[in-house]
Amino acid sequence: AQASVVANQLIPINTRLTLVMMRSEVVTPVGIPAEDIPALVSMQVNRAVPLGTTLMPDMVKGYA
């Protein structure tokens, strides 16, 4: 199954992502693919992302 990017902590709005904030997990619905984690580093989220939330393309500025 495809692993997705999941928030490893609460990520406040406009925060630049770092590796420690993200983990890969097989979840439904599928979000951003886990292999994109390196590309997500330093991108900003456009909303607060609670712990355990799957990151979707529309949550990350410049990803989609």
Score class of each variant (00 low, 15 high):
1 A>L: 12
1 A>T: 10
1 A>K: 04
1 A>W: 08
2 Q>Y: 13
2 Q>E: 13
3 A>P: 11
3 A>S: 11
4 S>C: 04
4 S>Q: 02
4 S>H: 01
4 S>D: 00
4 S>K: 00
5 V>I: 14
5 V>H: 02
5 V>W: 02
5 V>Q: 01
6 V>K: 04
6 V>H: 02
7 A>P: 02
7 A>R: 01
7 A>K: 01
8 N>D: 12
8 N>P: 02
9 Q>M: 14
9 Q>R: 13
10 L>C: 09
10 L>E: 11
10 L>A: 10
10 L>W: 09
11 I>D: 01
11 I>Q: 01
11 I>A: 00
11 I>R: 00
12 P>C: 06
12 P>F: 08
12 P>L: 13
12 P>S: 11
12 P>Y: 12
13 I>V: 13
13 I>D: 13
13 I>K: 15
13 I>G: 13
13 I>Q: 12
14 N>R: 09
14 N>T: 06
15 T>V: 10
15 T>K: 06
15 T>H: 07
15 T>R: 06
15 T>S: 11
15 T>F: 09
16 R>Q: 14
16 R>P: 12
16 R>H: 14
16 R>I: 10
17 L>Q: 00
18 T>R: 10
18 T>Q: 09
18 T>E: 05
19 L>C: 06
19 L>Q: 05
19 L>S: 06
20 V>K: 11
20 V>Q: 15
21 M>C: 03
22 M>H: 00
22 M>R: 00
22 M>I: 10
23 R>C: 04
23 R>K: 12
24 S>R: 11
24 S>H: 10
24 S>F: 11
25 E>F: 09
26 V>W: 10
27 V>M: 09
27 V>K: 06
27 V>R: 11
28 T>H: 13
29 P>R: 04
29 P>I: 07
29 P>S: 03
29 P>H: 05
29 P>T: 06
29 P>Q: 07
30 V>C: 05
31 G>I: 02
31 G>P: 01
31 G>V: 02
31 G>Y: 01
31 G>K: 00
31 G>E: 02
31 G>L: 02
32 I>R: 00
32 I>V: 10
33 P>F: 15
33 P>D: 05
33 P>C: 07
34 A>E: 10
34 A>Q: 09
34 A>V: 11
35 E>I: 09
35 E>D: 12
35 E>L: 10
36 D>Y: 12
36 D>T: 14
36 D>V: 12
37 I>E: 03
37 I>H: 03
37 I>P: 00
37 I>L: 13
38 P>H: 15
38 P>D: 09
38 P>A: 08
39 A>D: 05
39 A>G: 08
39 A>P: 04
39 A>F: 13
40 L>E: 00
40 L>V: 08
41 V>P: 02
41 V>L: 11
41 V>G: 02
41 V>N: 05
41 V>Y: 12
42 S>K: 10
42 S>T: 14
42 S>A: 10
42 S>R: 07
42 S>D: 08
43 M>K: 14
43 M>C: 04
43 M>Q: 07
43 M>T: 05
44 Q>N: 07
44 Q>M: 15
44 Q>F: 13
45 V>R: 00
45 V>N: 03
45 V>W: 00
46 N>P: 03
46 N>Q: 08
46 N>L: 14
46 N>T: 15
47 R>E: 07
47 R>H: 07
47 R>G: 07
47 R>Y: 14
47 R>V: 10
47 R>F: 07
48 A>V: 14
48 A>E: 14
48 A>I: 13
49 V>M: 05
49 V>W: 02
50 P>I: 08
50 P>K: 07
50 P>D: 10
50 P>G: 11
51 L>P: 13
51 L>G: 10
51 L>E: 15
51 L>W: 15
52 G>F: 04
53 T>F: 12
53 T>R: 08
53 T>E: 09
53 T>A: 13
54 T>A: 11
54 T>E: 02
55 L>W: 01
56 M>G: 04
56 M>Y: 08
56 M>F: 10
57 P>A: 15
58 D>P: 08
58 D>Y: 13
59 M>H: 12
59 M>Y: 09
60 V>M: 05
60 V>Q: 01
60 V>Y: 01
60 V>W: 02
60 V>I: 07
61 K>V: 15
61 K>S: 15
61 K>N: 09
61 K>P: 11
62 G>M: 10
62 G>D: 12
62 G>W: 06
62 G>I: 05
63 Y>D: 03
63 Y>E: 03
63 Y>C: 03
63 Y>N: 03
64 A>K: 14
64 A>M: 08
64 A>V: 12
